[in-house]
Amino acid sequence: MALQEPLEAVPARSGEEGAGNPQFRVYEIFVQRDHLSPHVWVGSVDAGSAEEALVLARESFLRRDPAVSIWAVEQSAIHRTDYADRDFFARETDKRYRTVAGYREENAARWRRYRRDLLDLERDFVRD
């Protein structure tokens, strides 16, 4: 599999450019709505530090929605697959044998047969 190069790290600069000036970094933001939900990626922010990223994330993404936790992950720390690497996500084989859908319909058809037999039995009793 091919890992994708990180996004070019030029972005946001401070007001006064020049050597020695600190720069904003990009933090990817993940929000957890409640304890039974996973952290879900919502977007990214520019911040000078991880602490600021968390505050900016709250202001950017949680003006209305409730949440119990935010993760801020520096973009450069994320390892990602390459969108062009289709082979990595190839699905040549039929995956239905792994799923509910692979069995449900046939099982239902079989159960219907049992039910029909049951009805036939009842009819026989009535006739008798």
Partner: peptide, 23 residues
Amino acid sequence: VGHAQLILRVAEDLAAPLGKGRE
């Protein structure tokens, strides 16, 4: 203002290879 921040973030990633930053 929040929308501006979100959109600028997307624009930055596109503009970076052109040598243009948020500022």
